[in-house]
Design a protein around this nucleic acid. Structure first.
Lengths: 264, 264
DNA sequence: CGCACGTTTGAGCACCATCAACTATAGTGG
DNA sequence: CCACTATAGTTGATGGTGCTCAAACGTGCG
């Protein structure tokens, strides 16, 4: 039973219809390096000087593509390489001691994947692509070499890790204090923000994960997610059609997110 | 209402009877520096050479004492100084947008406090001492200066931050997948491990936090915590007397922790 | 002492999980 | 093109876990 569930988690989110994806800027073709990458304000280059960015770029390997459903690494694998997400969408999850799956986070473009493994040198979560994804590999050994020469890069990496801590604290607060409806509203608003930050529409986007994956991430059952999506639609706050979501009333969603929490 | 709750969170856990605390080694008197600190295997010096530890010690300020109930910093304060906990017990919590309190973590000796603030330069959680506590201040500016010269220290700081990420992932899994009884068992076992790691008894210790603080951390109400502690006592797994806990049947607690989780 | 607060315990109920049936859609192979 | 399968998603009925409200007790502190 538990093993079955665990195995489930490794399965890709199949049968996702190929969704049109709005194009912000040309990201996929012959970008000449980190310095000109449209994601440079979100990714590792953020806050670095041109010279520093060029040094960083020297340790970035050539683009790697993974197809939907492919596993980047599994929990327990040795850490060799961090990845910056260029285009695509990934999920990280861990298997708890009792065989439960916990989705830890979803990753999108500009984010760095693999930093939780620096402590032990081994990955403690499994990462799988939820859609065809393009990654910039950053071999750890090279990164460390460059970091010793480029203090700015070092600082930036600290910032990114610290940011990841903060973001997980927010997830803890979500799981610890919010009701189901709030959690979902909060998640949709966050996704909206992240898409906007990347130049996509803040109101219309595609949920790359299944209801089950989403529910797991939010500490809910897939049925609850489904029901609440329907409810939000009935109330006119969103429009859902399979994996496509349109936010119709963001202020109302914000109100929902903030209101009627459980008492502390 | 919400503000009242928020203010509650700032209050110290008063009325805790002064509990005898087993003494492992003399930690509080004239320790001659990080190199001889009994916590060096847990704290920043872990994995550094003697020379590197000495350089680290140069940037550690003189011991700071905070009394129970004192606030180290509040959410929003600028980050100047990280602290290593020498003796004592602290809690970190944040106030969510809707005024809810979320206890983020408890800190004990050997741990570094404040690293979630590196991303923004401002603390996003409030830290308060739950008992009289002694801290080693590490001014950030000095630390950065030393780090540039001591790559080993840099690596160690990365490891510590990565470890914090992993630990918060575990908390997410706890909140996302475990039932109330499991959460409590898991917490007690973890506390037991941490005390043991620091040379204290693994089976008898004092809960420095109130039931409410503990419940908040575990995503439960204080009544639920109280009830479950009573239940575990009735079943002979633990003995509770106000804040003192004795673990009587650790294997059974482990079983409880691992069993009958919610289905994924 | 009395007050404030922490804690325990009880009764009732709400929220969400569970179980179940059904539909929809993608992919496969005829 | 179709049926056929497998998986994702929706919706309903029901029940349990843990929250809510409430009352009582204990204990540290002014």
């Amino acid at each position: 039973m538990h093993t079955a569930i665990a195995i489930d988690a490794f399965k890709p989110a199949n049968r996702v219809p190929a969704q049109p994806r709005p194009q912000l800027r040309d990201v996929s073709l012959n970008a000449p390096g980190c310095a000109r990458c449209p994601l440079r304000t979100l990714c590792l280059p953020a806050g670095l000087t041109d010279d520093e960015v060029n040094q960083l770029h020297d340790c970035v390997g050539s683009r790697r593509r993974v197809k939907r459903g492919e596993i980047l690494w599994q929990s327990g694998d040795a850490l060799h390489t961090l990845f910056a997400v260029r285009v695509g969408f990934l999920k990280s999850f861990m298997i708890t001691r009792d065989g439960q799956v916990q989705v830890i986070r979803f990753q999108m473009s500009g984010e760095i994947v693999g930093m939780d493994a620096i402590a032990t040198g081994r990955h403690n979560s499994t990462v799988v692509a939820l859609e065809d994804t393009e990654l910039c590999p950053i071999p750890l050994a090279e990164l460390e070499r460059v970091m010793d020469r480029v203090p700015g890069l070092q600082r930036q990496l600290f910032r990114i890790m610290s940011h990841e801590i903060v973001s997980k604290q927010d997830s803890m607060a979500l799981l610890g204090t919010m009701r189901a409806e709030q959690r979902l509203a909060s998640f949709l608003l966050r996704l909206s923000f992240l898409y906007q930050e990347r130049g996509y529409s803040a109101t219309e986007f595609v949920l790359r994960m299944t209801r089950q994956e989403l529910g797991n991430y939010l500490g809910l059952k897939l049925e609850t997610v489904s029901r609440l999506l329907s409810k939000l639609q009935q109330e006119g706050l969103i429009r859902v059609e399979s994996k496509s979501v349109k936010l119709l009333d963001i202020p109302a969603l914000r109100l929902l997110e903030a209101r009627e929490a459980l008492d502390a």
